[in-house]
Design a protein around this nucleic acid. Structure first.
Lengths: 244, 244
DNA sequence: CGGGGGTTTGAGTCCGTTCAAAATACGTGG
DNA sequence: CCACGTATTTTGAACGGACTCAAACCCCCG
């Protein structure tokens, strides 16, 4: 068999030409090192609901999201669970547990159709030995992730659901937002309201009610998953002084 | 002036002989490298309320708690604040922000009289270059810290104050607990109830009331900061199935 | 066009908060 | 060692944000 012709978009699944390469944790690797990853990695095409790995699994891979969106979900023994964080295209996940635990301490759940590269631990360890810069890259990334988790914790404790929801929308606008003809900002939500609730540490009912309030207050309009925000400044004002 | 005679306990403040050396992040360093730290470090003796650094300060040091206890406090623009985590004797703090930000993203507040070594960033960077193992040590530590922050987040969202308080007591018992003559477990709390409240994301009033409940339910006895727990298993049962 | 998940609405409840005041513990100086 | 002033802790009563449970609704997809 000769080399098969790659289907549309497939060349994005080769690290060597991956558009995220220069901004990802792997940017410190040279061509030879990248080639090693291309040799051993596994490319997975995932649908909503798929698990890249489950909490409790023994950890033996790192994942790199090529396209789509993944969430980290953490559960306890009583069946409670929350979404810790979203992982977008170009970001790496799973490396954390590789250094701290032998098991995954959360599950990686695909929220929308995604392509993901899976890199086995052995290769990662080899690369780390070979190129210490990669370790620093991970250290940086890990430190930044923790800062974001600590901020979630602070928000969770001190802010009401309404403010937390506004914060989330403002985060999503950078990646999923666009300017409409009339100048208003339009964000197309990449997830269900259940997922939003889990991410904000609340219930779907509360999200529905809070959205109602925001619409009544004319801060935004909702049509399914399409949010339009006429005046961003009003939103920013509100989260700066929640009491007023 | 000749070399002054070290006061009592002062030899613990020399890394070379520090009792925590073998279990700390610095255990991967050899004698020469440790000697470098001893040369450049600053030893601080702190009282309750002192700040090792404040949120927003530019980050140029790593700290190592020799004795006592430090808490990481994070605040937002509205004056809300929470305690993120406790840092006990032998543990390192401040390294996180050195890799993620140029500024400290939280404050390090001394909760009880403590001795702390302060190591300037330049020395740390030099050591990292010289001995890559140290970087891995930090990576490990950072990963473990994040796991603990994520667990706090899960607890915060899913568990009531009562369960969170029990969890905290069970954590403190390892370090501050002792067995009494009658077989009950006695924990001497290392912090005020205000600090407990801040750590659990609630108010002092709620802590007082929750303690009342626990005493009424005969799960434990309180006398100021001395807690005695007659039967540990009952506690463990409760946090395994909070609903019953 | 009929599921079936996701979403919304309603009513009632509860946990934790807020505010204010009383009680207690603590540290400091006499 | 005791008295005093301050900070912490406790108690009380009222309020409120978010939860629970349950039912209706809606939309998307097959």
């Amino acid at each position: 068999m000769g080399a098969s012709i790659p289907p549309d978009g497939c060349n994005q699944l080769i690290c060597m030409t991956c558009r995220s390469r220069s901004q990802s944790d792997w940017c410190v690797l040279n061509d030879d090192e990248i080639a090693l990853i291309d040799k051993v990695k596994l490319v997975r095409t995932c649908r909503k609901g798929d698990l890249l790995y489950a909490q409790g699994d023994t950890c033996h891979s790192i994942f790199c999201v090529v396209s789509g969106m993944v969430a980290l979900r953490k559960s306890d023994a009583d069946g409670n669970s929350i979404l810790l964080r979203l992982v977008h295209a170009g970001q790496t996940l799973g490396y954390r547990d590789m250094f701290a635990d032998k098991m995954y301490t959360n599950s990686a759940e695909v929220l929308r159709p995604s392509a993901v590269c899976q890199i086995p631990e052995a290769a990662v360890r080899k690369l780390l030995e070979h190129n210490p810069k990669l370790g620093f890259q991970f250290l940086n990334h890990c430190a930044a992730d923790q800062e974001s988790t600590e901020e979630s914790l602070l928000h969770q404790i001190t802010l009401p659901v309404r403010s937390r929801l506004i914060h989330l929308l403002l985060t999503l606008k950078d990646r999923y937002g666009d300017r409409a003809d009339d100048g208003s900002l339009v964000v197309s939500l990449p997830m269900t309201r259940q997922d939003i609730a889990a991410l904000l540490g609340t219930r779907p009912e509360t999200i529905a009610r809070t959205i109602n309030d925001l619409v009544s207050d004319e801060l935004m309009n909702f049509a399914g998953r399409i949010v339009s925000i006429p005046n961003l400044d009003v939103l920013l004002d509100e989260i700066e002084s929640p009491g007023l």
